[in-house]
Amino acid sequence: MTVRNPFQRGISLRVREALYGYGFIMIWVVGFAIFTFLPLVQTFLYSLNRVTVTTTSINLDFVEWANYTRALFTDPNFIELLIGYTIETIVSVPIVLIFAMIIAMFLNLKFRFKDLFRVIFFLPIVITSGPVIRELTSQGVASVPGIADIPAVIEFLEELPRALRTPVEYLLTSFILILWFSGVQILIYLSSLQKIDRSIYEAAAIDGASRWEQFWKIILPSLTTATIVNAIYTIVTLSHFSENKVIRHIYDQTYDVQGGIGYASAMSFIYFGVMILLLGIVYFFLMRWARRSSS
């Protein structure tokens, strides 16, 4: 009878487990290198060059940071589009989060025809695509019917200072679209609401907490993780959406004689930087709020 050294056996089990683990994720690691990492590096190289593509070859002409300075200081449209994107994102994120939270809390109640309403509120997940949205916006149905045309509203808009006017105008003209981007977020909120133990509500009710207090003391603190996930998801979807004006500009420049691949790549990286910055800011504020509400 052979008794193996338990220490040695433990090590080999560990190594074996790790090897199997790597085996399962290997395909992803290779894919990441080929389809994400290398192209990302390559795009960065392109952004430092003037790139000319012929039918047989790709010629690089090193220009240092010229593409970046051009995007930031010479291009008449890019910076403006970038600012527009930032404002739209900052306006949209809280609306999406609050709307999704409210709808999720409604759908978490018990009432008749709940299934019907669930079907309605998840519908945009299925049909939101770039061309569909473009057709709908061009028909002017992206907004609550008629609100942007009411004379009082137009007058009110003219009174506002310019800095406030763009966000409010955006809000009025594309309110429904913003709501349409909340489908997945409603799902995420709903699934974390369902994880809250029913007995906590009962205990709170016995202690005399009103529904209002229950919301602030029980529901909201348990939705912090979902809120952070949702905020990141919202920013990323809005930024990747193919009808996004910055993306359209970059795409147009890719095939433009004046612009070209090098310039488009530089703009892509600036855009990516702004996006990371937005994610960072939102994450920072939400984390601070999460820490405060948990303590």
Partner: peptide
């Protein structure tokens, strides 16, 4: 690290990787 890279693949905009591909 794998989780971090996973998150990165979700965040990186497609136009930052699409041209070389």
């Amino acid at each position: 690290i794998v989780f971090l890279l996973l998150l990165a693949t979700f965040i990186i905009p497609p136009q930052n990787t699409v041209i070389p591909q």
